[in-house]
Simulated assay, not measured.
Amino acid sequence: MATNPRIAPIERATQRPWDEWLRFMDAIGAADLDHGRIAQHVHDELARTGTESAGWWAQSVTVAYEQHVGRRLPGQQPDGTFQASMSRTTPLAMAELLERWTAFAAADPELQALAAGEPRLSGTERRMHWRSRAGDGYAVAVASEPRAGGAATLVVTLTGLPSPGASTEARERWTAAVTRFLGTV
Rank of each mutant, 00 (worst) to 15 (best):
V42Q: 14
Y138D: 09
P119W: 12
L158R: 01
G149C: 01
T51N: 07
V142P: 00
A177H: 01
F24Q: 10
V42D: 15
L97E: 06
G123L: 06
Y65D: 13
L158V: 05
Q40Y: 09
I7E: 15
D136Q: 15
L114N: 02
W57K: 03
S85F: 12
G70Q: 11
T51W: 00
P119V: 12
A30V: 05
T179R: 15
T153Y: 00
T175H: 15
A8G: 07
G149E: 02
F104P: 02
T184P: 04
R12M: 13
G123F: 03
R171H: 10
I10M: 06
S85H: 14
G165C: 06
Q59H: 08
E169F: 00
R16A: 03
T51K: 05
A47Y: 10
P5C: 02
A2V: 01
E118S: 07
D19C: 01
F181R: 12
P164L: 04
A152E: 11
T157K: 02
E96H: 04
R127E: 14
P9F: 07
V140S: 00
W56Y: 14
A95Y: 05
G160K: 01
P146H: 04
L182A: 09
A103P: 05
R6W: 14
T90P: 01
P9I: 11
R126H: 13
G123P: 10
L111G: 00
P78W: 05
Q112P: 06
A93K: 11
S53W: 07
S163Y: 03
R37L: 14
D19M: 05
R71V: 08
G75A: 09
S60W: 01
A27F: 06
A134W: 06
G117W: 05
A93M: 02
W21F: 06
T184E: 11
T81H: 08
D79K: 08
A27E: 14
T184Y: 04
A27V: 07
A141R: 12
T124R: 11
T62L: 11
A54Q: 11
G135Q: 15
V178A: 15
D136W: 14
L33Q: 15
E118W: 00
V140G: 01
A8N: 10
S163K: 04
P119K: 12
V69F: 02
R180V: 03
W130Y: 15
A54G: 11
T184I: 10
L182T: 08
R16E: 12
G165K: 00
R147L: 10
R100Y: 03
